[in-house]
Amino acid sequence: MVEGNKIEAKKLDRGWLRIDGEECKGCGLCIEACPPKVIAMREELNPYGYRTAIYAGAGCTGCGVCFMVCPEPGAITVFRAVVRRVEGSGHANAGVEEAISCASN
């Protein structure tokens, strides 16, 4: 997964979504709630017979509204991009985290 991975690209989306296709029951509330409209309903059914929500793959702002409206405890995980400033070499843990998105949506 993307968590913890250092991504070299300079321009990341501010947010990223992971939707658990086994926990999602396809109610669609996240699709309705999402401000940038980057969540859709998958066409095919999951093993339990639900159509589930799916992240479009780009455009997430990390606002977290989808998570807030989702009735399932862990169906949605919201990630936000942070900048880690690495001072020299060998001091990777001394970095300062700085959120580049503040979920103002």
């Binding site: 993307v2 968590e3 913890g4 991975n5 250092k6 991504i7 070299e8 690209a9 300079k10 990341l12 947010g15 990223w16 990390g62 977290g64 998570f67 807030m68 405890p73 862990g74 949605i76 995980t77 919201v78 990630f79 936000r80 991009a81 942070v82 900048v83 880690r84 400033r85 690495v86 001072e87 020299g88 970095g95 985290e97 580049i100 979920a103």
Partner: peptide
């Protein structure tokens, strides 16, 4: 000392620990 910026994703919201 030189410093470089690295972008990465961290969990902002996910399953609560109380579940």
């Amino acid at each position: 000392m030189s410093s470089e910026a690295v972008q990465e994703y961290t969990v902002a919201q996910g399953r609560a620990k109380s579940f």
